[in-house]
Design a binder for these strands. Structure first.
Lengths: 224, 224
DNA sequence: TTTAGATTGTCACAATTGTTACATTTCAAA
DNA sequence: TTTGAAATGTAACAATTGTGACAATCTAAA
């Protein structure tokens, strides 16, 4: 477990080597290896430790009472697992976590995380920034889901991309299939709505690119 | 600003008076009064301070470009505002915050929050627990929103209540109007679905109470 | 280069939900 | 107790979305 690897973990960004050595020697932080298909956490298990992936990737899955498995998401190194659920009252893993390949991970007990964050203000800020990032993504997705129609979700999505790119021509950052899934709608319905919006003169689509033709109407759409 | 008031703020739970005095004297924490209709924060304003309500309540509103106002939520003392958005990269208030009545609030700069959390481990744990609580609520709501049909959302909702109450007879914790809004569906559609589910023998509704008649089918519903 | 798998575009039809409207009931403030 | 506002129950009809199916295209691995 060398400094170079550790400094690449977002949680330890901008923290000097001697500080990291100090932190790691004061706390019981273990590096653990998991083989492919090993379980890193069980669904509904008490979330009493922070797991940070050093290498490899895992998948999160929900299991229903009849034993069926539904995949939820993949997480890659060097990201942490379920950081938003580490604290709180009845903090349990929302999904079962399985190694998709050979995985190395830091495992830090909740108690040690607390002490670690108390020891170093930069570390604390990193932790809070990372948590806020996840929360912002959750919040943004909820915002999308709360629009009633697909047209509104698309309007919101394209306006966001347009604002970020500072251009009326936006490039989709996901496949349309992935976008449909992100919106929680069926793929054909998404395609149909894109076609309709082009017919209505709101946009011009070509492959991965979309040109916004009537920004005013798009803005109007997302406000009822 | 007395100890009794401060100790009732969730963030300062279980912290002794002398500790609080120590923290407050080391940092610049100001108690601010706002009259009815005063603005505590602007939409899209940089979120560079933590605001904790001591008394009174505020409303969060979104404003669209045409100037229309859409109410989002109310927040009451002794809760904090937008605690999940204080840190992170481009951390801005998602809504405009207006006093609904006369309001007293603690205003603590982001920098001071960092220092404060470094000073006291209990305070840090409180902060993380509170944040986790908000994140869990966000996540739970997203879970509901991601079900496609109203029937599935209702099944999930009733099973959750049933599990919490350890009974097949559950009492709704919101009005049906509020529940419809929480689900992001129209009220008549929610009522219709409840009626249909009763016709189908899944539940038995009477006023505020719902009796679960076919738990097995409800469980099946929420897994496709 | 070939080829299997993923992505895309489109369609008709079924299912679900929204909208609007109205009558009734409940509940808390006057 | 009165009363007005909020909550509830229901209905017909319109709008939106899902489903399943098929063909065309793209892409990366063999």
């Amino acid at each position: 477990m060398d400094y170079k690897t550790i400094s690449q973990i977002p949680l330890f960004h901008s923290i000097e080597e001697k500080e990291i050595i100090c932190i790691f020697s004061a706390l019981k932080i273990t590096e653990t290896h998991f083989r492919k298909d090993a379980l890193l956490a069980l669904q509904d298990e008490l979330c009493n430790r922070l797991i940070i992936l050093l290498s490899g990737s895992v998948k999160g899955e929900m299991i229903d009472p009849s034993g069926r498995i539904i995949k939820v998401e993949d997480i890659f190194a060097p990201n942490p697992l379920a950081i938003l659920f580490l604290f709180g009252e009845n903090n349990r893993f929302p999904v079962q976590v399985t190694a998709r390949e050979s995985v190395t991970a830091l495992v830090i007990s909740k108690q040690s995380v607390l002490r670690m964050l108390s020891m170093n203000e930069t570390l604390l800020k990193n932790y809070l920034d990372i948590s806020a990032g996840f929360a912002a993504r959750l919040s943004r997705k909820l915002h999308f889901m709360s629009f009633r129609t697909i047209r509104q979700k698309l309007a919101m999505y394209m306006l966001s991309l347009s604002k970020a790119a500072q251009s009326d021509i936006v490039e989709l950052d996901k496949t349309k299939s992935a976008l449909a899934e992100y919106f929680g709608v069926s793929r054909p319905s998404l395609e149909r709505e894109l076609t309709k919006m082009q017919q209505d003169g709101l946009i011009l689509t070509s492959k991965k690119e979309i040109e916004i033709k009537d920004k005013k109407e798009l803005v109007r759409l997302i406000h009822l």
